Amino acid sequence: MSFAAVICASHAIAGEPGDMSSGSSGTLRAGLHFAGYSLVEYQVRQAAQAGASRVFILVGTVTQPLSRAIDRLTADGIAVALVRDMVSLVREAPRDKDMLLVADGAIIAQQHYAAIAAQPANVLLVADDSRATAALERIDGQHRWAGLLLVSPDLLFGTLDMLGDWDMELTLVRAAVQAGAHRIVVPQDEILEGRVALVDSQAAADLVAQAQLGRDGRGTSRDGAVDHYLLRPIALRIAPMLLRTQVPALQLRIGGMALAAIGMIAAMLDWPIFGMLLMLTSILASLTADRLGEMARRGPDDGWLALAPYALVLLGIVVVGNAAAPSLAGLPLAMLLGIVTLAVRWRRTGDIAPWALFTPATAVLFLILATLFAGVQPGISAATLCAIASVGMMVLMRRA
C-alpha cells in the first residue's frame, strides 16, 4: 500500500524563543542547515525517496526560506504541501493511504526510512532506553521513540478527530503504542554513531552531518577500476566538507568541465602528461558532484551536464593520440570508452567487478604511465585492447 508523509516543523531550537509568530526561520529546528538544505527539506527528500507519494509539512508559520524550499522540491517533482493546523491536515490528507510521521528535528539514516516503509502499518522506529537515547521521547519503560512512525488511515484520522489543544506528534505516537504497533528497534551503535539523532541546535546538526554524511552511501557505486579504487575514496572524503560549506554540485560539474577543456588544450600544446592529469582531476570533480547529489537525496544525474566532463576527457584522449600519430589513433579508444561510460552510469554493466571496467579515468591513468615508460602510441594501442576486453566482458557476462 502506498503512503503519504507528514513532517513536523514547528519546534524552536535550543536557547531560542518559542514564539513562532515572528516568522524567523532561524528559531526553528526545521530551519537548521543540513546536507546543503534546511533540515525539513532534507527530511522531505528522504520521505520521497522512501516512496511517499505526497508530503505534508506541519508548520506554525510560513517563512520565505520555507517557501523557497517548497519551490525547489516542487521543481524536482516532489508533491509537497504546507499545513498549519489539524483542520487543514484532515482536509488534505488522503483517506486511503498510510501516513509516515517524521519527528521535528529528526535526522535518520535512509535505511531506516526504507525499513519502516516496507512494513504494514502500524509500526514504530524505536531505540532501547539508555543514557545514549535520553534526548528521545520515552514511550514505556523499555523503549524510546526514534523519530519515525507509520500509521494506518483509521488510526491517523481517529486521532486527528480528537478535540482540544494537543501535540499531534506525541499524541499520535502514544495512540500507536496503545494500539500495539509493531516496533523496529534501532541498534545502539546507530545512536552512538549519529545515524539516528534528534537535533535542536546547529552545532548538533553539524556533528551529525560529519558522522553520517561521510559514511552514508559507501555501499553503492557507479564507478569502475580507477574511479572505484582511487578516485571514489577521495570523493567520499571531499564531498562532506564541500556539502557543509554549501558548494553546489552544479558548480563542481562546471569546474570539472573547465579542467577537462584546459587539459585538452594542454595536450594540443604538446604537454600530454600535464593535460591528462587535469583530465583525471576533472573526473574526480565529476565523481564528487555525484556524491554531493547522493548525500543531498537527489536522484542520479544522467543528463548531458553530468556526461559533459567525460565527453571532454574523451576528446582529450583523441587529441593525445593524434599528437603521437596524426591518424586519429585515439578515436577507436575514445568510442569504446564512451560505451563503457554510458554502461556504468546507466547501471548496465551487470555483475562485472569494478576492476574489469576500463573507464576513462582508468584509460587516462594508463596513458600517463605508458607515456612515462613506453610512449603515447604504444599506450593508445594497449589501452584500446583493454577497452575491447572490458566491453567484451560486459557483453559475455551479462545475465540473460
Rank of each mutant, 00 (worst) to 15 (best):
A30L: 05
R29M: 07
Q49S: 12
G31Q: 10
D76Q: 15
A69D: 13
Y37A: 04
V44Y: 03
V40Q: 03
T74G: 14
Q49K: 14
D76L: 13
L66V: 01
R54G: 02
V44R: 01
T61W: 06
G51E: 05
D76Y: 07
V62E: 15
T63Y: 05
L66K: 07
D71P: 03
V40G: 07
A81V: 04
F56A: 02
Y37E: 11
V40R: 08
A69M: 12
A30D: 06
F34N: 02
R54H: 06
A75N: 14
Y42E: 01
G31K: 11
V59L: 09
G31S: 08
R68Y: 12
V55I: 09
Q64I: 13
V80W: 02
R29Y: 00
A75R: 14
A81P: 00
R54L: 02
V80N: 00
A50W: 06
Q46C: 13
R54E: 04
A30P: 02
Y42H: 15
G36L: 12
T74I: 09
V80K: 03
A48W: 02
A79G: 04
A69G: 13
H33W: 08
A81W: 01
T63A: 01
G51T: 05
T74M: 07
L73K: 05
Q64N: 11
L73M: 11
A35V: 12
G36F: 12
G36V: 13
